[in-house]
Computed example of a mutant assay.
Amino acid sequence: MRSSIDLEIRPETEAAPATIVDGTVFRINSGNYHVQTEEHGVVICKLRGNLKKELVYSTSGSRAKRVDSAKKRRDTDPIAVGEHVRIDPDLAMIEEILPRRTEIARESPSQRGQHTLVANLDHLFVACAAKEPQPDPWLLDRFLVMAESADITASIVVNKIDLVDSGEEESLRLRMAVYERAGYRIWYVSARENIGIDDLRAELRDKISAFAGPSGVGKSRMINALCPGLDLRVGDIGYITYKGRHTTTSAELIPLEEGKAGWVADTPGLRQLEFWQVDKEDIQYCFPEFKPYLGECRFADCRHLDELGCAICAARDEGKIDERRYRSFVELSTL
């Protein structure tokens, strides 16, 4: 018999390393983050506490990186739909938020910074109607400038093309041609009659896309047509609500087709995007037709407001830049 001091010493068993997988946040609801992963399908996660705070790391080169301090909790959710994250599927916990490629944001309700509506957005479709209501080019310019400022590809979708006759359609296409000359692709569709929807759906495939525009242009009906079986409720003024468990206060990426790549973003804030995050000095870069003339003005600090030797104004006078689009630039840059 062994004595009490003659005990067998066994090596400690190392804990199995956590399994970390990548995923995309496609729905946020009441602090729950629905993450789509390749390995585990959908995992409903919580956010690790330190990711809710602004961490200040050491900058000393003589010691390992560590947190020196943690500022107060963020005023807005640090995660948006479209976010690429790393999660621990066993703990259902988001461990890391990966860097964003793009984002669409608005001012937070507390007015202490920005609230990101959609992260990693590939394509913003700015929606208007051929009729009922008539297209508002000034509002259209506003949405396009926001997309340009966020470095997001933008296109224009003209819905309700079935409501206009051939003469009205010809006039509409002439008015919209200024955007084609600026480099924007225009889609003429009818969600009600399923005109042009298949081609538009093909454009959305393998991307995170979103629709923005004023009420009444048929955004909800277009999303219904693009995503069969979704059944979003269509309101009299184009306001979207979800049946059953969904509400207009929750953000979500809607799968384009079951089992196929592609998402359509729907968040309440995308319906009325504020202009707050665009610097006035940068608006000149948000009109694609201006780009050949930027840097050609006589004075480096030219504001393009009819200053002497302004290349933008000269191009306008020569008909190379549309007069109305130029006036839209002036309005936006002098707000």
Rank of each mutant, 00 (worst) to 15 (best):
G295K: 09
A154R: 01
D306V: 02
I283Q: 08
G238W: 03
D162Y: 04
V85G: 03
R175Q: 15
G244M: 06
D206C: 05
R2E: 10
F299T: 04
T24A: 01
V158L: 11
A70P: 11
R298Y: 13
K71Q: 01
T76L: 02
D306T: 07
P255F: 11
S333F: 08
I237S: 15
E96H: 14
S220Y: 07
T153H: 13
S155F: 07
Y326D: 02
E258Y: 09
I9C: 04
A15W: 07
L91E: 06
L172D: 14
W138H: 13
E12W: 00
K207T: 04
A15H: 10
K207L: 08
L91Y: 01
K207N: 15
R48H: 08
K219V: 13
E132D: 15
I5A: 14
K260G: 05
E54L: 06
G167Y: 10
I28C: 09
N194G: 12
N159K: 02
C45G: 12
I9P: 08
G61R: 09
E38S: 10
G167F: 15
C45L: 11
L200A: 08
K72T: 00
I44D: 14
K219E: 08
G113E: 01
T102W: 03
T248F: 00
L200P: 02
P89M: 09
S333K: 14
S220F: 01
R245F: 06
E169C: 14
Q284A: 13
S166G: 10
S30I: 02
A127D: 15
G213Y: 01
I9H: 04
I283P: 11
L273I: 09
A119M: 15
Y285A: 01
H34L: 03
I20S: 05
D322M: 00
D141E: 09
Q111R: 04
D75C: 05
L253V: 00
E169L: 09
L140M: 13
E148L: 01
E331D: 12
E12R: 13
R101L: 08
N194A: 15
L332H: 10
M93H: 15
A147I: 07
D279E: 05
P78S: 09
M176W: 00
R325V: 11
A261K: 12
E180D: 09
E307Q: 03
E296H: 10
K131C: 14
V189M: 06
T267I: 08
A15N: 02
G295R: 14
E168V: 05
